[in-house]
């Protein structure tokens, strides 16, 4: 689902400055677990903050995630995973993005990810990992600062 709630009804100028172009983010649940509370709350918060959010839903494979990200021409992918399969699935998302020449798409993640594994994922190229208790403002700020081209 995509949301386009521009403040003005005027069509956006074709040459709008990059800084005013809406940030587009794909959010999804990677792997087999169905715990979607977090990803939904974050998606709504981003949408309320003016980000265009495409929520792809549950049980996405790395292949599905990367395909959707490229099709939707997003600036970032927000991955939620609580099943413990993050060390298998998230690196694969990064690899596939590179293979498809979309390595500039920023990947960030949330869920139950132990500190040492979070550090490892960051060295592999995940921009940020938001663990339990992260404030929505922190995530919104991150998206606004890191994904704005």
């Amino acid at each position: 689902m995509s949301t386009a709630s521009r403040p003005s009804s005027k069509p956006a100028p074709r040459t709008e400055p990059a800084s005013q172009k809406k940030i587009r983010v794909l959010t999804l649940k990677l792997g087999l677990d169905g715990h979607d509370r977090g990803v939904k709350v974050v998606s709504r918060a981003l949408r309320d903050a003016g980000v265009e959010v495409i929520y792809a839903g549950l049980r996405q494979t790395p292949e599905m995630a990367v395909e959707a990200a490229i099709q939707e021409d997003v600036d970032g992918i927000g991955v939620s995973i609580l099943s413990g399969a993050h060390m298998t699935l998230i690196p694969r998302v990064l690899e596939l993005l590179k293979e498809r020449g979309a390595g500039d798409i920023v990947v960030f993640a949330g869920g139950i990810i132990p500190d040492d594994e979070a550090a490892e994922l960051k060295t592999l190229g995940v921009a940020e990992i938001f663990g339990p208790g992260t404030s929505l403002a922190t995530i919104v700020d991150f998206v606004n600062s890191r994904l704005r081209k």
Partner: peptide, 22 residues
């Protein structure tokens, strides 16, 4: 674990990374 809950054997492709974890 998640593969058992979702009806997959441990050697199924979608089980990769999920076996025995939760």
């Amino acid at each position: 674990d998640m593969p058992t809950l979702m009806g997959y054997d441990s050697d199924a492709p979608v089980s990769e990374g999920e076996v025995g974890r939760c």
